[in-house]
């Protein structure tokens, strides 16, 4: 009796259409908000210091990122691939400079740079302060030519970086007339304010 009844009930099919609709909406949202950058942040790991008072967000486009790691290396990257190609002749190259001549650059050992211990992008090393200054100026000019917009400069320093390296970098920025820049920080958790 029961078996007969079961046979009569048509196989239950769930209508997936509304489900798919919602998923498509979410998908569209994520596709639209996704930003693809040359993943510098992934390549060179730094522990950002935290601060509680900064309301400005990191600019999204036309950014020159200066990463200072705890070994005292400075890496320069521009988000526009054409600018990189134009200035350092390598579309995925990463310019690096070690201002302190008394210590070894940290990038000689890839294990210093990130957890994986490998860097996907080739490092273009600059050993000379004047050449490095020229590089910063070239980046700015090239970006202005290619995108028509001014580069915005952000400094991403590691918590444990020496202030000396940051000061050297600030001197270089000042000498190259880049007097407006920002320090990237993490928003402080549990901010008292």
């Amino acid at each position: 009796m029961r078996a007969v009844k079961k046979k009569r009930v048509p196989p239950q099919e769930i209508d997936m259409t509304p489900y798919v609709d919602v998923i498509m909406l979410i998908l569209t949202f994520f596709i639209l908000t996704a930003q693809f950058k040359a993943e510098l942040a992934e390549d060179i790991q730094v522990q950002l210091p935290s601060s509680g008072n900064d309301t400005t967000k990191l600019p999204e486009r036309n950014v020159m990122t200066l990463v200072v790691n705890k070994f005292g290396d400075i890496f320069v990257d521009v988000d526009n691939i054409n600018v990189r190609e134009d200035v350092i002749g390598d579309a995925i190259g990463l310019a690096a400079y070690h201002p302190d001549s008394t210590t070894q650059p940290g990038w000689t050992n890839p294990a210093n740079l990130n957890e994986k211990g490998e860097l996907k992008r080739p490092i273009v090393a600059f050993n000379d302060r004047e050449k490095f200054k020229k590089l910063l100026i070239d980046f700015r000019l090239s970006s202005k030519n290619i995108t028509g917009k001014d580069l915005r400069i952000v400094v991403k320093g590691d918590k444990d970086a020496d202030i000396g390296t940051i000061q050297d970098l600030m001197d270089i920025l000042k000498e190259t007339k880049n007097t407006r820049f920002s320090f990237v920080t993490d928003l402080e958790q549990g901010n008292k304010e």
Binding site: D54, T56, K57, K174, K177, T179, S182, V184
Partner: peptide, 11 residues
């Protein structure tokens, strides 16, 4: 990430 804006004097 947040940023902290710095303006250096022109020098």
């Amino acid at each position: 990430p947040q940023v902290m804006q710095i303006n250096l004097p022109k020098g």
